[in-house]
């Protein structure tokens, strides 16, 4: 599988040509639509909501949110993608005007022809007056890795389709711009930007297990309860969803009954760590610097911070033999 993340940064990779190709490709559109539907299903929203779409691209997922009656705010780093999104919005508005003109006479019995409207929607034209339609979307040109510019408790939910793996793409040697720092800023601001008891579903393509665990750990560190869900696991069509919950609601119930879900609960991990620390305090003794215990604890701490740490083996922290 080709990974565009390895070739160029997102704002350069999705140039005018690629953006247009990406949006026009029916296969990609179908996959994106399926994943957005799945994400909406996981979010389980009960009423028209205010949703943040991270890495909205050309607004493919936004259109689905719109049809479901939600209002959304999209962010993307690629100006070309946003340009395509604007053009598509324009086209849809024009299409909407046309259908409205035609439908003027039928407005009184609009509840009866819901099915017709769905057909219209399937063809890519939403009908503003009859179909359940949200308030549309606003677009932002922004880098998720710089943090999100929203007030605490703004959004009912967040979705992200095939985007957060780009956060691990780092093109500078700047110490404040490592993948860890970018993930950290992103998840910290996402956590605060969401309402209590809300959820975020991020579908992403992890490059490998290291990247997958790095992203999950960064989310847990920010305070989310996180669960990983994999559809079609093991096939080359595997889709990884990171399901995040903010406060209150237990993620275990959200993903219960779904196969292949690992639940890593940040709160439990933190509590376990706390009690671990507590025990050490009781025993009183400080851990000797450089000892095996000290090394293991330090590695654990660094893992907790979401850093990449070498695995433990029988050689870790082993005493060296005296040479003379």
């Amino acid at each position: 599988m080709s990974r565009p993340e390895d070739t160029l940064p997102p704002d350069l990779y999705y140039n005018d040509t690629t953006s247009r190709q990406y949006t026009r490709n029916t296969r990609i559109r179908q996959i994106q639509a399926d994943m957005t539907d799945r994400a909406l299903e996981l979010l389980d929203l009960q009423q028209p909501s205010f949703i943040l779409d991270l890495g909205c691209g050309s607004g493919l997922s936004g259109e689905i949110l719109d049809k479901a009656g939600h209002t959304w705010v999209g962010m993307d780093i690629s100006p070309s993608m946003l340009d395509v999104a604007l053009q598509r919005q324009q086209q849809r508005f024009e299409a909407e005007d046309e259908t409205e003109d035609v439908d003027v006479d039928e407005d009184n019995d609009n509840e009866d022809d819901d099915e017709d409207d769905e057909d219209v929607a399937m063809n890519g034209h939403t009908n503003g007056s009859n179909a359940p339609s949200g308030g549309g979307g606003d677009l932002f040109l922004a880098d998720m890795g710089q943090g999100l510019p929203f007030r605490p408790g703004t959004f009912d939910a967040a979705i992200s389709i095939s985007a957060i793996q780009w956060l691990c793409n780092v093109d500078s040697t700047d110490i404040s711009n490592t993948a860890e720092m970018r993930l950290r800023r992103f998840f910290d601001t996402l956590y605060s930007g969401l309402k209590r008891n809300s959820r975020a579903v991020c579908q992403f393509y992890p490059k490998n297990d290291v990247q997958k665990s790095m992203i999950t750990k960064a989310a847990i560190r920010a305070g989310f309860g996180a669960g990983l869900l994999e559809d079609d696991e093991g096939t080359k069509n595997a889709k990884t969803y990171l399901v995040l919950s903010v406060g209150g609601g237990d993620i275990s119930s959200a993903v219960a009954g779904m196969e292949g879900v690992d639940v890593e609960d940040g709160r439990q991990i933190r509590e376990a760590m706390k009690s671990g620390k507590h025990k050490r305090g009781k025993s009183g003794g400080m851990v000797v610097e450089g000892s095996k215990k000290w090394i293991m604890e330090k590695k654990e701490k660094m893992r907790g911070k979401g850093k990449v740490v070498k695995g433990d083996s029988k050689y870790t922290g082993r005493k060296r033999r005296v040479a003379f």
Partner: peptide
Amino acid sequence: KEGVGNFLLPPHLV
């Protein structure tokens, strides 16, 4: 511009 807000920051402000 055209209803799209540009919230990209120069690196030194991040």
